[in-house]
Computed example of a mutant assay.
Amino acid sequence: MTRKRAIALSYDEQHVAPIVVAKGEGAVAERIIEKAKQYDVPVYEDETLAVMLGQLQLNETIPEELYKVVAEVFAFIYQVEKKVEER
């Protein structure tokens, strides 16, 4: 069984691309996921992406080669939030 990992990203207009704002494995990952759920932040599960993003440092901008896949994640989050707002 693989150990659970979580990476939290943030994006605003001040940055060129999303940045890593939290990351962890095991119990730390569980706490990140719990906090996300507590604040109604959608959770997107992709182990391969989590491994790649986990190699970045906190407050580091994601590399250009991950822009497309992270854009897909943000599109997923937007769709989830839109469905929630419609309810």
Rank of each mutant, 00 (worst) to 15 (best):
H15T: 06
I77R: 02
V28Q: 04
D12A: 14
D46R: 10
P18K: 01
F76A: 07
D12I: 12
E34R: 15
K35C: 05
V70H: 05
A29V: 04
Q14H: 08
A8K: 00
E25A: 10
A71K: 08
A36S: 14
D40M: 14
Y11E: 03
G54H: 07
V69W: 01
E72G: 05
V16E: 14
K82L: 14
R5A: 05
D12P: 11
V41F: 12
A71C: 07
P42I: 06
E25N: 03
L58W: 12
I62P: 00
Y11C: 02
I62V: 07
P18V: 03
A8V: 02
D12V: 07
Y67N: 07
G24T: 00
E45H: 15
I19N: 11
K37Q: 15
E47I: 14
F74V: 05
G54Y: 08
V43R: 08
Q55F: 12
V43Y: 07
V84I: 14
K68F: 11
V16M: 10
E72A: 05
L66C: 12
A75S: 15
H15G: 03
E30Y: 11
I33V: 15
G26K: 09
V41N: 09
L56G: 04
N59Y: 13
K4D: 09
E60H: 05
L49I: 10
V69N: 03
S10W: 13
N59C: 03
A6T: 00
Y78H: 09
F76L: 06
G54Q: 06
A8T: 00
I62F: 02
E64R: 12
L53Y: 00
Y67R: 03
G24K: 00
R87V: 12
K4W: 03
A50C: 15
R3S: 03
K23D: 01
I32G: 01
E86W: 04
T48D: 13
R5M: 07
N59I: 06
L66F: 15
V20K: 04
A6P: 00
